[in-house]
Amino acid sequence: MLTRKGKYGLKALVHLAYLPTGQLAFVNDIAKNNNIPKKFLDAILGELRNAGFVQSRKGKDGGYRLARPADEIRVGHVVRVLDGPLAPIPCASRTRYEACEDCNEATCQVRHMMLEVRHAIAEVLDNRTLSEMRDSTVEELSEALKYQA
């Protein structure tokens, strides 16, 4: 399950993806526009900076921006950084595998299904970029506006 941390991190990155290249956004603006508690966002942006997704500048004219183009940032990588493995159970994880104490992995039907779930989640998230998330939002909004007219 995507945690609030993961959700807020993705929302903040999409916010930054809308900015012209090199432009900085204030934390307060990101928090306010996306309904994210500022203190929590500060911590999330720190993790995203440490992982190389964003750059920051301190001071009066400081703020955050993407560290690389939005089309080079994979959603799956962001989710793993903020929330950990994509697998719903440890024995189905590729990055943080842990054997179960209560079953035989070769015959455990729960594990086999969770491997499928993990693969399906990874297929979507690892093949979607931040720019695609940003652009799909724009497309959805323009479609919604067509029906309201």
Rank of each mutant, 00 (worst) to 15 (best):
L2N: 07
L2H: 09
K5F: 00
K5I: 02
G6P: 07
G6C: 12
K7M: 11
L10N: 01
K11M: 12
L13F: 03
L13D: 02
V14E: 13
H15Q: 09
H15R: 15
H15T: 11
A17C: 08
A17E: 12
Y18K: 13
L19I: 01
P20I: 05
P20A: 13
A25V: 03
F26Y: 05
F26W: 07
V27D: 04
V27I: 12
I30M: 07
A31V: 05
N34Y: 04
N35W: 08
N35L: 15
I36T: 02
P37A: 09
K38Q: 07
K38T: 06
F40A: 07
F40T: 13
D42Q: 07
A43H: 08
I44G: 01
L45F: 06
L48R: 05
L48E: 09
R49F: 14
R49E: 14
A51C: 07
G52E: 11
G52T: 14
F53G: 13
V54G: 06
Q55S: 15
S56M: 08
R57C: 01
K58I: 03
G59H: 05
G59R: 08
G62H: 11
Y64R: 04
L66T: 04
D71N: 09
E72M: 14
E72G: 12
V75E: 09
V75N: 08
H77K: 12
H77S: 05
V78S: 04
V79G: 01
R80M: 05
L82K: 03
D83H: 02
D83S: 01
D83K: 04
G84A: 07
G84I: 09
G84W: 04
P85F: 00
P85M: 03
P85C: 09
L86P: 01
L86F: 05
P88D: 02
P88F: 01
P90S: 05
C91T: 12
A92N: 04
A92G: 03
S93F: 10
S93I: 13
R94G: 09
T95A: 01
R96E: 15
Y97E: 10
A99F: 14
A99M: 15
C100N: 13
C100P: 09
E101P: 02
N104Y: 13
E105Q: 11
A106W: 04
T107W: 02
C108A: 11
C108G: 01
V110P: 00
M114Q: 09
M114R: 00
M114H: 12
M114I: 00
E116F: 01
V117Y: 00
A120N: 13
A120S: 15
A122E: 00
E123Q: 11
E123A: 14
E123W: 13
V124E: 03
N127G: 04
T129V: 08
L130D: 06
L130T: 07
L130F: 08
S131E: 11
S131F: 10
S131W: 06
E132W: 06
E132Y: 02
M133E: 10
R134M: 13
D135F: 10
S136M: 12
S136E: 14
E139D: 12
E139F: 08
E139R: 15
S142R: 09
S142P: 00
E143R: 06
L145H: 10
L145R: 15
L145T: 06
K146F: 07
Y147C: 01
Y147D: 07
Q148M: 11
